[in-house]
């Protein structure tokens, strides 16, 4: 082809400069800096020290495990609740479109605002949740003050905030399932339960894939909600990788912080990429 293409590659250029310069270059550089003792003044080569520290200091190990726990719990809950809500909100119930808006709106609200709000609601003695529980005779727990509960409480708030997106994606997926399938299955005598498991779940699989992948990536990377609600506390009990990265950065341990970043990157790559591949292959079988 001797003529110039009407679709020149230099159209990539402005985006490429910004994306490579501010995203890819730092990502590549992070592999090097994670191997250094790095502070605001100098970077000295340190070998694997930062990584060794990451997997020997209990509070750093805790951060990694917490990240996995948080991503797992929120993904599972968002997937299940999202599907159930979507089925409910496509069944033609009273107030359906209003309910959809109500469920979705928290997705658009400032995460920090949500965090502060629930911090107040979850106050152990004066918070509205425990006051309400006390009214029906239940002694509410210290949602954010109990070290073994704090991370789970943050996860619940994340589900509250994010389930609307999962619901929305499921509603879009459900709307592509032709009604014929349901009618055919009903003529064959399928029960509601069978319709759900034999028709809805398999045919809405692409939406499930999207919801799981998005929730996992979001869950593994989550920072703002944890930071607004607990700052990783009490102690280090609700620290996740993203909050560890921030704390080490603030403390001036840039190398350690960057090593955390690389670990987060590897976690996402090692979990999400194979999972996405596996979920997609199940989709083809369906």
């Amino acid at each position: 082809m001797t003529q110039k293409s009407p679709y020149p590659y230099w159209f990539f250029l402005p985006a490429a400069v910004i994306f490579l310069g501010l995203f890819i270059v730092p990502t590549v550089a992070s592999f090097y800096f994670s191997l250094t003792y790095w502070d605001p003044f100098e970077a000295r080569f340190a070998g694997w020290d930062n990584y060794v520290q990451f997997f020997s200091e209990p509070f750093l190990i805790r951060g990694t495990l917490n990240t996995l726990f948080f991503a797992f719990v929120t993904s599972v809950l968002k997937t299940i609740l999202g599907l159930l809500l979507a089925v409910l909100l496509t069944s033609g119930i009273f107030g359906q479109s209003f309910l959809r808006s109500v469920v979705f709106f928290p997705v658009l609200v400032s995460t920090i605002g949500v965090g502060i709000l629930f911090q107040e609601l979850m106050h152990p003695t004066e918070g509205a949740i425990n006051v309400a529980l006390a009214a029906i005779g239940i002694d509410g727990p210290g949602w954010l003050t109990n070290p073994s509960l704090a991370l789970f409480s943050v996860a619940l708030v994340d589900v509250w905030r994010g389930v609307g997106l999962a619901t929305l994606i499921y509603i879009a997926g459900l709307s592509t399932i032709p009604n014929d399938y349901y009618e055919a299955a009903r003529i064959d005598g399928a029960t509601r339960w069978q319709l759900f498991w034999r028709v809805t779940v398999p045919l809405v699989w692409p939406a499930t894939t999207t919801v799981i992948i998005l929730s996992l990536i979001g869950g593994l990377r989550l920072f703002d909600l944890v930071w607004a609600m607990t700052r990783g506390g009490p102690g280090f009990s609700s620290d996740v990788l993203a909050s560890v990265i921030y704390k080490q950065y603030q403390a001036g341990f840039w190398g350690l912080s960057t090593a955390g970043n690389v670990i987060l990157f590897l976690l996402i790559a090692l979990i999400v990429a194979p999972l996405a591949w596996w979920l997609n292959s199940k989709e083809l079988d369906a």
Binding site: F19, G21, L22, F23, I24, V25, P26, T27, A29, S30, F33, W38, I217, L220, R221, A242, I245, Y246, Y249, W254, S257, T258, N261, V262, L264, F265, I268, A269, V272, A273
Partner: peptide, 19 residues
């Protein structure tokens, strides 16, 4: 390459250094 941007967490401290 564009797709990787959806997945990879930004490397914050190296970005600060670059900026």
């Amino acid at each position: 390459v564009a797709l990787t941007g959806l997945m990879i967490p930004p490397a914050v401290v190296p970005t600060i250094w670059l900026l």
